Computed example of a mutant assay.
Amino acid sequence: MLQFNQISKQFGGLKVLQDVSFTVPQGGIFGMIGPNGAGKTTVFNLLTGLLRPTGGQIVFNGKDLGAVAPHKITELGIARTFQNIRIFKEMSLLENVVVGMHDHLDYGFAGLLFNLPGFRDAEAKARERARELLSWVRLDHKAHLLAESLSYGEQRRLEFARALATEPKLLLLDEPVAGMNPSEKTELMAEIVNIKQRGFTVFLIEHDMRFVMGLCDRIAVLNFGRIIAEGTPDDIKTNPEVIEAYLGKEEA
């Protein structure tokens, strides 16, 4: 589904990524781990068009994303959540999810301005779909509450529902368990598995190695802007370079 081919990113004299290559297969959960400053968030910013690579090629479902605008990348089927939760706290859960559907609502400016039947039908269908997505993340019983009333873990699940409202083929999760306690992490792991089982492909970046090892089908490890390992969780946890990157090299 997704290929990074020899991707490099440089800011002035600072090389953030160097010849990064990996493949995200369709239908699974792919994880990228690495210490702070390894370049993980830069990978997501390149993939979503917020940054452009200095060199190399990013291919999504056969299409080169090199010159594609961020909103067009969303239309192609890539959605993202952020490490810092970005929901509209003064809006209801239902309204938050409907916002994510704006690219798929076809009623025109006149329909909106004059409240025409086409607009009302589209709004009704959007709200029905939003309730369905909220049920996927077990928040449908709170659909009409303000988002600010949710716990931290519930806000993260709402963000998932809003991302899914864009009808993505690939869902990007940026450090989804940052700031969570063990119980919330376990609940969120189940939510991500549920998303996968509904036919979505998931690509997440995360610091929590235990979480990633228990969830992902394949994992890539980024360190100082380079991929040092890629494989199954069993491959990664026994890789000497990965152990050194996380634990340091033992002095002789």
Score class of each variant (00 low, 15 high):
A245L: 07
A245P: 07
F224I: 06
N45E: 08
A38W: 06
L215Y: 02
E241Q: 10
P35E: 01
E250R: 15
L158K: 12
L93A: 03
G77F: 03
N84C: 11
G111T: 00
N96Y: 04
T42E: 03
I78G: 13
K196Q: 13
I7Y: 07
P70Y: 00
M91A: 01
G31L: 02
D174I: 04
L51E: 14
M180P: 10
Q10C: 12
V68Q: 00
T186H: 15
T54E: 05
A245W: 10
T201D: 03
F203K: 06
L50C: 10
I58K: 06
P182H: 01
E123C: 14
F200Y: 08
A220T: 09
D174Y: 01
V202I: 13
G55W: 10
A252M: 13
I192T: 00
K249N: 05
F200D: 09
T201R: 02
L50Q: 12
D235R: 07
F211W: 02
L65D: 10
L164C: 09
F203I: 00
A229R: 02
R156D: 05
P240G: 12
P35H: 12
L158I: 11
A143Y: 01
Q3R: 15
L94C: 01
G49Y: 00
L51V: 05
E148T: 10
L146H: 05
E90K: 11
L46C: 13
R80I: 08
K63R: 15
F203E: 07
V43A: 15
Q57P: 03
E244N: 11
D208I: 02
T54C: 06
V59K: 04
I243R: 04
L134K: 02
V193H: 11
V24E: 09
R131E: 13
I236C: 01
N36P: 04
Q57C: 07
G55S: 15
M32E: 11
R127E: 14
R86C: 09
V16E: 03
A161Q: 00
D234H: 08
V193F: 13
I236H: 05
V98N: 12
T42A: 14
G27T: 06
I243V: 13
E187G: 08
R127D: 04
L113M: 14
R162H: 09
P240T: 09
E132D: 15
M209T: 14
G153V: 00
E206F: 01
K72F: 08
L158T: 12
R198G: 04
F4W: 02
F44P: 09
L2E: 06
E175R: 04
A67S: 15
A161T: 09
T201I: 09
R86L: 11
S183F: 07
